[in-house]
Structure formats: C-alpha cells, structure tokens
Design a protein around this nucleic acid. Structure first.
Lengths: 180, 180
DNA sequence: GCATTACCGTAACACTTGTTATTCTAATCT
DNA sequence: AGATTAGAATAACAAGTGTTACGGTAATGC
C-alpha cells in the first residue's frame, strides 16, 4: 500500500531531548532537530501537530528523566531530605539545561516544584514521614527550610557562583538538619 | 550646519532598561526598543555600535539598579546578612526580570554574585564584619550558609513555588542565623 | 508489474531578528 | 535664502523561525 516510515517518533523526541540537555531548550527548533535526526522538517510535523506539542513532550520527558535520576541516585544521606537534596543539587550541577527547564522556566504547562519532586512515589511525603518518625516536631516546616537551602545551592551552581561536591553537599545538609 | 538630534542615548537606554524590567531581557530587540522610544531603529545604531553594546549597557544599568535598591531598602533586620537577604528576596519578588538577568543568566560579561552584592561599598564584607563583631566564630561560613538559604528563597519566588513576605523573610533569616 | 498511497524532501510563505544602504529632513553657517 | 551636513525614516538584505504546499519516492496489495 504505502511507504514505510523511516523516521520514528522516538527518533524525533529523543534527539529533541538530547538537544535540550546539551544546548538548552531554546535551541530546540524544527530545523535543528531535523538536522540532528538526519531528515527534513517534514517528519516532525507528521508526528507532532506543531512545535508546541513537541516541546511539551520534551518537557514531560525531562520530568521523568529527573525522577529516574533521583531513583537511581545513591542513598548515602543520613538525615531526612538529604538524599533528595543531594540528588537535586547534583542534577543541577550535571544537567544544567534540564534543571533550568524544570525548575526555573516559565512554561504554561510547567509543573510545580513540589509536583516534580514528590512524583508518583511520594518522595517528599516519604522524607517528611521519616523526619516525623525521627522525632522532628515540625516536619513540613523542616522540609520548607531544608528546601530553600537545597534550591539555593542548586541554583547557585548553575551560574558557577558556588559549586558543591556531593561530599560537601552531604555535610551541609546534615548540619542544616541538625540545626533545625 | 547639521540637524539636531531628537533621540538621545538616555531615551534609548532608559527604554531598553524599562523593557527589560517589564518584559524581560530577551524582548529587548532593536525594533521593539525603537517602537517604545517612538523612532526608527536608526538612532540606536548611531549611538551604539550594535545591539550587543546596548545589551551590555542595560546589564550595567541593572547592576546599579540593584545596588540602589539595596541602598534604599529599609534596614529592619536584626542579625547579620538579614538586611542584605531581605532586600535580595524582595528584589527577586518585585523585579523578577532584572533578577533573572543579574543572578541567573549566562552572559559573557556577567559579574559574579559576590561582585554584585558586595558592590562599591563592600556590603558583604560589612555584614561579615558585623557577624564577627557579634561573636560569630566563622563569619565567612555563616555568610555562605545564609546565602544559600537566601538565594534559594529568591529563586523560588521567581517560579511562584514559594513567595515570602518581608515579615516572613525576616523571621526566617533570624532563625537561620540563630541556628548557625 | 502496476496502481495506490503514506512518507519525506524541496521549496516556499510569512514572520522576526540584527544590520546597513539610501533617501529624506531639518538645523545651522554663510 | 541657500548650501551644508548630521540625524532619522524607509527600505532592504541575510539569516533564522514555525509552518505548509507540492511533488517525488518507495513500500505494499493486487
């Protein structure tokens, strides 16, 4: 009957996502994605209604990527929120462009920080419960305080104003928790 | 002899700066600035070699604007770094676009966070000395810890994930200092 | 082997960007 | 008043954007 497709939706989305990682979200244009895939712009618009739709999918993929990143991140933290915090700060350091997209951009479809962090598995609630079980009187307040700290460290690494190693992060977060 | 200029360098720079405040740095284009000034793009290129030069001047003006903002900010803080922190967080809340430009962008001419904060007057050193005089054993470490916290609160207000009033900011910073 | 038809490349449209060439305008000197 | 000349408006260029029209290509059913 008809011709077989030579460019798949995965080809397009994956390349667009990798471009976001490497060059930033703003560089994901129709022509540049096509060039990376090695095709014309046509297959993109066969698969996606328009670029907004592709960008939305890249964003969704970034959310999942972060959540996987956290799932696989070594659990070496000893206090509540430190595993989440260490992963978040490492993510900002290692995946600057994705971090900007997820946690500093102004997209209409953007999820809240809490939504992304908590995810399907309730990562934040898990840590809050852990704090509670460990005798923390105000675990929500502790989360808020810890997270301001964590977000600050993450955002500062973006601009190179202050880059923490994992070991330094760990120590700081443990001190910060103890101080609360 | 010749015609008198009807568009001054101030007209251009001031409008470009206000556009940055209101619409963000990325919207400062030659045509949009000209439209706001009420002229063609020609006077811009008479006064500035190219747009990079104008953008550079807008950036410099933003640095000075922040430093003035801090100078005029009410000094209600009771602990070291709290005045600086309150001003910084309020600035992020009130001047989101300028904050992004100054503290989250990736311009080649970008100054470091410390350079901007410390400024001509040595604001940071002043606060560090204050902490030292108040008996803080490790004032540099305290600054670092406080500033991660402050930067976190500021960056979080950008995305609307957590917006602190001045009063809340004040209380948090005082607690945070006491905990150190 | 041939018709069908979805796929994809080419080319174009309409728009935006920085920048520049050209032409017109107006202020000043003579 | 008229010549001079810098300033500014118009228009264009080249590059980039999203998007679409068109036409060639190739895989499948017959």
């Amino acid at each position: 009957m008809a011709r077989k497709e030579s460019v798949t939706i995965q080809d397009i989305l994956e390349n667009a996502f990798e471009m976001t990682r490497e060059e930033g979200f703003a560089n994901v244009t129709a022509r540049k994605v096509a060039a990376r895939v090695g095709c014309s712009t046509q297959p993109i618009f066969r698969v996606y209604k328009n670029m907004d739709e592709l960008w939305g999918e890249v964003y969704k993929k970034a959310v999942l990527f972060f959540q996987d990143y956290y799932d696989l991140f070594p659990r070496t933290g000893t206090v509540p929120f430190s595993n989440l915090g260490m992963a978040y700060i490492a993510f900002a350091r290692e995946e600057k462009n994705l971090f900007r997209l997820l946690f500093l951009s102004e997209l209409p479809e953007k999820k809240s920080l809490y939504e992304i962090l908590n995810g399907e598995k309730g990562n934040v609630l898990f840590e809050i419960n852990k704090a509670s079980a460990m005798g923390c009187a105000n675990p929500q307040g502790m989360f808020m305080r810890m997270w301001l700290f964590i977000h600050g460290a993450a955002c500062m690494s973006l601009t190179g104003d202050y880059d923490l190693t994992d070991a330094e992060t760990k120590k700081l977060l443990e001190q910060e928790y103890a101080n609360g």
